[in-house]
């Protein structure tokens, strides 16, 4: 019998929208994640063109404060000197420096996040003076926009140029997307970009629908996590 999101202890903020789009769910880290939408092979090709994938069930966290950089480096994290640059870690986790005193930590697309678990369990108010936890998993939803048409989609809803000539892999852009404050991280490869997008959970359904509407003219569709894993 097919897994329903309501059978899992945790679910994405968007699970009703995903169900409406025909998602098939699998359990990952105790959460229901849309693994595909019934066309596993077609979705891999769709991901190369233009796809939207909900990653809200994957692991993430954040830290801020004047002592953020020193504390993270003490834990063995590789952190960029400049703001708005992402540093890949050896275990597949990525750490995006949002400001001199703020960082965002994203787990990999397989559901892993050993570094995130270590950071969250090591951190305490007493031991990390001047470095404070930001509960990104509870406050931000996480989408991936994939494919060669994704930069064209962003020209409709975002004022910052995200085409290849303006944005390199691992760069971070913090701006307005469809009138919402959002963090965009350029990932993927030089040939096929993947843009991670994080924004406030209160507007998750609004942005999901706005993006589906905006990507219609480019043939964009929802894709499952499997297609994203195959792509990267």
């Amino acid at each position: 019998m097919a897994l329903k999101p309501t059978q899992c202890a945790r679910r994405s903020f968007l699970y009703r929208e995903l169900e409406n789009s025909g998602a098939r769910f699998e359990e990952l880290n105790g959460s229901a994640i849309a693994i595909n939408y019934g066309d596993a092979e077609g979705e891999t090709a769709q991901a190369r063109k233009l796809g939207i994938c909900d990653l809200s069930s994957l692991q993430r966290t954040g830290f801020k404060g004047w002592n953020m950089a020193d504390w993270l480096r003490l834990q063995g994290v590789v952190l960029a000197e400049e703001s708005n640059i992402t540093s890949p870690q050896t275990d597949g986790t990525r750490v995006a420096r949002l400001a001199p005193g703020e960082a965002l930590v994203l787990g990999d697309y397989q559901g892993g996040g050993a570094l995130i678990e270590k950071l969250d369990s090591t951190w305490s108010m007493e031991s990390a003076d001047g470095c404070y936890q930001v509960p990104r998993a509870e406050t931000n939803f996480w989408l991936a926009l994939t494919g060669t048409e994704a930069p064209a989609l962003f020209t409709k809803i975002c004022a910052v140029d995200l085409r290849d000539q303006a944005t390199s892999v691992h760069s971070v852009v913090q701006t307005n997307v469809a009138r919402l404050n959002a963090i965009i991280i350029r990932g993927g490869t030089a040939e096929v970009p993947v843009f991670d997008l994080l924004s406030d959970i209160a507007s998750a359904v609004y942005l999901w629908r706005a993006l589906l509407d905006a990507m219609g003219e480019f043939g964009g569709k929802p894709i499952g996590l499997k297609a994203l894993q195959d792509l990267t």
Partner: peptide, 17 residues
Amino acid sequence: MKQMQCPLNGWRNIQEF
């Protein structure tokens, strides 16, 4: 549209400020 250079994020449309 007018633009302003944010010291952290670079040039952005004035409506972001």
